[in-house]
Design a protein around this nucleic acid. Structure first.
Length: 694
RNA sequence: GGGCAGUUAGCUCAGCUGGUAGAGCAUCUCGUUUACACCGAGAGGGUCAGAGGUUCGAGUCCUCUACUGCCCACCA
């Protein structure tokens, strides 16, 4: 009899993983039907949360299932440079350790610090990723800032520029005064804060506004075209008195965007600081006057108020207007304030010269790709969200005033003319030898490089790269709904633009993990669970099953340690059932006996059904259901019923052959279930095989 | 304001194309120390959010309502 402990020892997992990796079994063989997944690259910010754990658990479970079916599986791992996030972290670190700001340190030194950060965190992150048991091909690991990625990004930019899909222009952007950069619409979140609605006299017209401090930048008053109250003013100019006492004339325009029901039905138009006003101004050819600068302070046009922070200026200006008899009344009002998701600063819509990507044509193609079924979403309901977002998509601001990130391959001569080229030399050729060129100082939005990820990782822009030819378009993208717009939609757009094909055929959106009370987990709430600590305590298999089990496609799930305990117990159960089979049926070859009694036949039928369902559930990405059924079957059908039944048979029968057959049947039944289990619990099954059946 | 989900046992959740409800945890009873107490046998517990409709028959399809969550939006 073998000496087998009654507990599965999960501390051997890293060793097992090492063996797997060294054996090369995670690398695709290049034979069979390809099945590829590009792993969502985690940010190199130092920590992995439960959401990452879920992502990798699902990735790996699907990959192992596909391998079991005989597919040529590739999981390509990577990491993201996370421009804004990492820059902010390194800035904090430099400030703390050297007492210097980024600007004091200088760009070159600062970037050295960033690379030090990357060099420190990258290896740690890779070690962490391996703890999940992720069967990724590490030889193909890619970082969004490695040389190949940089080249891909530069090439993409140049190609898109040549195709006239990228342009530079002075438009209203979301300005983050804290980070001193523009950010995209999707990086802005809104918060309701108590504020006031100010009713201000503009000559004969009174209008309501929440931002009296921007009055200096008003270049029109807008009313609805059918509003009879104001029709007589439309087309005329009205003299307006500013808080500085200065008087100026501004036109009254008619625009559909104005809601006659709100306030007085008249609205001030401040094109430089309000997206809606900016649009009105475009339609009526109105000038834009900058009232707020890049630091969020009032500019010279505000006269005596110049230099005040916009938020402070509000009440001061209003008070002055009141003294001047221009403030009719105020009322309490909930303001919807735009906040930078990155820094928490109040966003100031501001005119700025930036690079943009045109989306008008591409979004149609991106819509068609999903509508036509070239890309399938799981769950399907996400398609509506996707459609809605795309149809409302504006051009995408892709430049950022940061230091850490992909450089923009654009050069300017003294007259400001743009030369887009891969190097200074190449630009110089375009501009002529005498031109004095300067490089664009900005970097690209992180999501621009992430958007190229499904093909840049496979060798693009080299169209002949073997991996690109074999594994693109990828089979499946597995991710969370939180980055549907940031990432999923952008990959589709950029892939259609540059590869003329979809980046993936299926997208599986797993649901968000919430805490016990159904609240989002966040560091600030202090309700986060560290997946690596859970793995240390209970093992990777239990962890993987705990995030997959009881989770269904796209549905949020509440998570607590109780769940992982359930699966840790399951791991022990499987271990002990296998142990029993190994001990009693030690030398039996796992061949299905030919003679079966009724109980055994019934078991076979149930097992057959389980296998069929398993495949069906995986096809629909109902991993939670697949796991639950397996759990039920193994524990209650196999362990509780079949093992107990055969145990009795073995004890009671006098027929030696019958006892042998019972043992053989048990052994066979176990071996049939182990492959199914190994999708979810690869470490456990590996150990069972090695310790008990070798 | 619009869109999308969800509302099933005390708790966490399953329940595909309709046929009078399931699991895990928790509770209670009993058992077992030669696979496993991270165990076994069993029990209690649900008018499937509410109302209406389709149907021989509805958690399961339709409509409306309520509550919860998520996403989007230029009502200043």
């Amino acid at each position: 009899m073998k000496e087998i402990p009654t507990r599965y020892d999960h501390t051997t997992e890293p060793v097992t993983y090492d063996e797997w990796e060294k054996s090369g079994q995670f690398s695709p063989k290049g034979k069979g039907e390809p099945f590829s997944m590009i792993m969502p690259p985690p940010n190199v910010t130092g920590d992995l949360h439960l959401g990452h754990g879920l992502t990798y658990a699902v990735h790996d479970t699907i990959a192992r299932y596909q391998r079991r079916l005989g597919k040529d599986v590739l999981i390509l791992p990577g990491a993201d440079h996370a421009a804004i996030a990492v820059q902010a972290l390194v800035e904090k670190k430099v400030q703390k350790e050297q007492g210097m700001s980024r600007t004091q340190l200088g760009k070159e030194k600062f970037l050295e610090e960033v690379w030090k950060w990357i060099e420190y965190y990258m290896p740690r992150m890779k070690v962490s990723l391996r703890r999940f048991g992720l069967s990724a091909d590490w030889t193909k690991f890619r970082f969004t800032m490695d040389e190949h990625s940089q080249n891909a990004v530069q090439t993409a930019f140049i190609e898109l520029y040549k195709k006239d899909l990228i342009y530079r222009g002075n438009y209203l952007v979301n300005w983050d005064p804290k980070l001193q950069t523009a950010i995209s619409d999707d990086e802005v979140v809104y918060q309701e804060v108590p504020g006031k609605l100010y009713w201000i006299k503009y000559g004969p017209i009174t209008l309501a506004t929440v931002r009296p401090e921007t009055k200096f930048g008003d270049t029109a008053i807008a009313v609805h075209p059918e509003d009879h109250r104001y029709i007589k003013y439309v087309g005329t100019e009205i003299e307006v008195t500013l808080a500085t006492g200065e008087k100026k004339k501004i036109p009254v325009v008619a625009d559909e965007a104005v809601d006659p029901e709100f306030g007085t039905g008249a609205v001030k138009v401040t094109p430089a600081h309000d997206p809606a006003d900016f649009e009105i101004a475009k339609r009526h050819n109105l000038p834009a006057i900058e009232v707020i600068d890049q630091y969020g302070k009032l500019t010279a046009v505000a006269g005596e108020f110049a230099g005040l922070k916009a938020s402070d200026a509000r009440e001061i200006v209003a008070k002055k207007l009141e003294e001047m008899g221009l403030l009719e009344k105020t009322e309490d009002y909930a303001i919807r304030q735009p906040i930078s998701e990155r820094s928490g600063a109040v966003i100031e819509p501001r005119l700025s010269t930036q690079w943009f990507m045109k989306t008008t044509e591409l979004k149609k193609e991106a819509l068609a790709a999903v509508r036509s079924g070239k890309i399938t979403f799981f769950p399907k309901s996400i398609e509506k969200t996707y459609e809605h977002w795309l149809s409302n998509l504006h051009d995408w601001c892709i430049s950022r005033q940061l230091w850490w990130g992909h450089e923009i391959p654009a050069y300017y001569d003294e007259s400001g003319k743009i030369y887009v080229a891969e190097s200074l030399d190449a630009a110089q050729k375009l501009a002529g030898a005498t031109a004095k060129l300067t490089k664009d100082p900005d970097v690209l939005d992180t999501w621009f490089s992430s958007g190229l990820w499904p093909f840049s990782t496979l060798g693009w822009p080299n169209a002949e790269a073997p991996d690109l030819k074999r594994y693109f378009p990828t089979s499946l993208l597995e991710t969370g709904t939180d980055i549907l717009f940031f990432w999923v939609a952008r990959m589709i757009i950029l892939s259609l633009a540059l590869q003329k094909d979809v980046p993936f055929k299926q997208v599986y959106f797993h649901g968000l993990i919430l805490d016990e009370d159904g609240k989002k987990m966040s560091k600030s709430k202090g309700n986060v669970l560290d997946p690596l600590i859970l793995i240390d305590k209970y093992g990777a298999d239990a962890f993987r099953m705990s995030v997959i089990g009881g989770n269904s496609v796209g549905q949020p799930q509440r998570y607590s340690e109780q769940k992982i305990i359930k699966y840790r117990n399951f791991v022990t159960k499987v271990w002990n059932a296998a142990r029993f089979v190994a001990i009693t049926a030690d030398n039996t070859k796992p061949v299905k006996p030919t003679k079966l009694d009724r109980t055994e036949t019934e078991f076979c039928q149930k097992l057959e059904r389980l296998t069929q369902n398993n495949q069906k559930f995986f096809t629909n990405y109902q991993l939670g259901v697949a796991l639950e059924e397996l759990y039920e079957f193994f524990w209650h059908e196999f362990a509780d019923k079949l093992i107990e039944y055969e145990k009795k048979v073995i004890q009671e029968t006098t027929d030696v052959e019958r006892a042998k057959e019972a043992k053989a049947f048990l052994s066979w039944a176990l071996q049939e279930q182990l492959p199914l289990l190994s999708d979810f619990a690869p470490f456990l099954v590996d150990r069972i095989k090695k310790e008990m059946f070798q």
